[in-house]
């Protein structure tokens, strides 16, 4: 996975923005829930034995005869967890365009996060999980992890996954709550999608769901004949009519499915974005990054 300087220059313009504060791990650029010795004043607190006298507000003591200590908002980094659906609906070689798009989105989000010293962890459901990458210098190892993961998971013989269960397991490995970007096609029952996203939401993470669809998912082929489709996950085969009304019905059902997921995300205060693979994944991925609301 290689990116041109022009692509990286485009990404340099982005910065990750969180909607809420988290406890960070190191000093960073995001407002933390931690109070301490930042620049921005947060509150006063009664002096307690052991506090450093230099933080006592002596002017206030003179006015009110109370020993109060000034507290400031800490600025820390925010951990970014990227979870990629490693089920066969993305890793099947016939559907490789979706996987490539998912990897590009993950890589671009990681680049932006690493540029502001935010740690990034990538977890592939049903596949390997990366170590935590800390700084901008870690982008190269990160892309090579994605390349190796692609070689490992893109196979027609990949095992069938229970996404909800895999998501639950992945969520248990999260040590510091932060941003969670879940990349999947979400072409499964809404309940399963809700369970998958809920696993991360329950870990007090800010969840951003990114739906990656392939060109073949968007609509059925335009043909007067029937054709046979097989489910990438289960291998089930089914004959599909390709007349105009069926195609319209398919698009209508797909829109309804996506609408239900979007509605669930809204209700659960999660961000939901859809990206459809078409042509170069770079452009589609950057567009998705721009529309997510996470990067400005």
């Amino acid at each position: 996975m290689r990116f041109t300087p022009e692509t990286l220059k485009l990404l340099n313009a982005f910065a990750m923005r969180t909607r809420r504060s988290f406890y960070g791990i190191r000093q960073g650029a995001h407002r933390s829930q931690r109070r301490g010795h930042g620049i921005e004043f947060a509150e006063f607190r009664n002096y307690e034995a052991g506090d450093n006298p230099r933080y006592i507000d002596w002017n206030l003591f003179a006015r009110s005869d109370k020993l109060l200590v000034k507290r400031y908002l800490e600025e820390e980094n925010v951990a970014l967890y990227i979870v990629i659906d490693g089920s066969r609906s993305l890793t099947h070689p016939s559907l490789r365009e979706k996987w490539d798009l998912a990897c590009h989105i993950a890589a671009f989000a990681s680049y932006i996060a690493l540029a502001s010293q935010d740690p990034v962890t990538i977890s592939i459901l049903g596949g390997p999980s990366s170590p935590r990458f800390w700084s901008g210098k870690a982008f190269a190892p990160l892309t090579s992890f994605l390349t190796q993961a692609t070689e490992a998971v893109v196979s027609p013989d990949a095992r069938q996954l229970s996404l909800a269960e895999e998501a639950r397991r992945a969520a248990t490995r999260v040590s510091f709550p932060g941003i969670c970007m879940v990349i999947s096609d979400f072409l499964c029952p809404v309940e399963e999608v809700a369970a998958m996203l809920g696993s991360f939401r329950s870990r007090n993470m800010e969840v951003h769901a990114v739906q990656v669809l392939g060109s073949g998912d968007r609509s059925l082929p335009d043909s007067s004949d029937a054709f046979t489709v097989s489910d990438a996950e289960t291998g089930e085969v089914r004959g599909v009519p390709l007349d105009g009304s069926s195609r319209a019905r398919y698009e209508e059902l797909l829109s309804a499915h996506i609408g239900r997921i979007r509605e669930h995300c809204l209700e659960s205060r999660m961000q939901f974005t859809t990206a459809t693979a078409a042509g170069s994944p770079v452009g589609v991925a950057i567009d998705a990054i721009r529309r997510m609301g996470l990067f400005v």
Partner: peptide
């Protein structure tokens, strides 16, 4: 008829 692998038969 041509067989095609799709992501899911959900729809």
């Amino acid at each position: 008829a041509p067989e095609r692998v799709i992501s899911s038969l959900l729809i």
